[in-house]
Write a protein that binds this DNA or RNA. Structure first.
Lengths: 235, 235
DNA sequence: GCTTAAAGTCAACAACTGTACACAAAAATG
DNA sequence: CATTTTTGTGTACAGTTGTTGACTTTAAGC
């Protein structure tokens, strides 16, 4: 006698099957989104997971999916939106409670990495789809990071010592810093869990690289100046 | 009356269906690899393309696939190997014919980007699977880039002005430079074809960022020195 | 030249996919 | 209360997938 045990689904974890209509809807919508995120924690990439898989993992019949999203692409875009919104919020908080000037860099790196670990699933998704995904997803993510870079640039502009840097140069520098953060994020996500020492090593690595960048910025001479110097030494 | 026109396949492009056994085998093996690469030029990621798709695109019946690879994973690993081998070769050539010291950076960036454009398919594959792929693929790619970083570090060590930098610091710096290259590669691959001005902009951006890094390196004080300075100003 | 082993073909399978449609339950609305 | 709308279920269908086993063809080895 074979007893069929239904897979414990995301929706079952919540208490009730009923309730006001909109909250009910929101609940399974969330279940679908979370199911997709969870499926991507493994080896799968977004366009290799199926609508049916998501529905199954969310504890819902496949056709119910269509009550919430037109297709998987729409769900994907929603995930990007959510992930980027979370990132923006982190930045806003960081701005409102500025760190002490001493060891500013390593502290920032530390808090950022903590945030990444706390939101592993979202960042896993972003990292994978930043290049693997459809053109639409890539574009959305790229737009988000571009915004991120710009905001960082305006923050940097307020620093003492950034006076003689043009807007373009500030953008160049902050894109470099964001590069560092992305690289660190990706390495962090690929670490086996509970490898504390590696995390610390990553922190140091990132902090050093940023220090190096800031050191370079203080010495930076805009192109116009360099050209003048060249002309003088030649003449 | 419907006329079935067989899709013009990769193998059909070659002239003959016969020949010595091993060359014949090599030919369809290549066809399979190329077919996979071609399929990845679009929106697909590696684990979203099917064995049958690859076989079809290679002009071969699905079961013939198994004469060459155990499964798709094995084909994937082969592609990584090939891509990394190509990269290593480029580096070797670059080393054997060193560039003039003047405008060394921008020239290096230029040749590298040319190389990426010439081997679009491989780099597209690497970029996508660097995070999207299976653990095995990711590991292989990561190992390759690690090697790349190390080689770059030993090259940097030969530069004048790198005397007071430790091995770890050189590694840190070259990983930063590789970060820049990776970021540039990804942006380059996502550009619409024949957008020459954007390519030039990317070149400038990368060159500037590297210049900044080198500027920073010249000013870099190892941690031990910084600690001593701190102690002196405090005491 | 006959045999053997390799490279590729063909047909078939069970499993899975996205989606369409008719239906059930239950909350919202009157 | 009765009616309508919304949310989720069940069934069904046509396509695609990975893999099997038995076959043809053809180069290699004796």
């Amino acid at each position: 006698m074979t007893r069929i045990t239904r897979r414990r689904s995301r929706r079952d974890e919540e208490e009730s099957e009923t309730g006001r209509r909109d909250v009910r809807k929101q609940r399974t919508r969330r279940a679908l989104l979370d199911a997709a995120l969870e499926l991507m924690q493994g080896e799968q990439s977004f366009n290799s997971i199926s609508l049916r898989e998501v529905a199954r993992n969310a504890g819902v019949v496949p056709t119910a999916f269509y009550r919430h999203f037109r297709d998987m692409d729409e769900l994907g875009l929603t995930l990007v939106e959510e992930a980027l919104r979370a990132l923006r919020q982190m930045m806003r908080e960081a701005r409102s409670a500025p760190l002490p000037a001493s060891s500013l860099i390593s502290r920032s790196v530390q808090t950022y990495m903590g945030y990444v670990q706390a939101n592993q699933d979202y960042f896993q998704f972003l990292a994978k789809e930043r290049f693997g995904g459809s053109r639409a997803l890539r574009l959305a993510i790229r737009q988000g990071t571009a915004l991120f870079i710009s905001e960082l640039a305006t923050d940097l502009a307020r620093f003492p010592g950034a006076n003689n840097l043009s807007t373009e140069e500030l953008q160049m520098i902050s894109s470099l810093i964001v590069n560092i953060m992305i690289a660190i994020t990706e390495q962090l996500l690929d670490l086996p869990t509970d490898s504390e020492s590696e995390v610390i090593w990553l922190q140091e690595q990132a902090a050093q690289q940023m220090r190096l960048v800031f050191l370079g910025s203080t010495q930076w001479k805009p192109k116009s100046v360099r050209d003048k110097q060249k002309a003088m030494t030649q003449g």
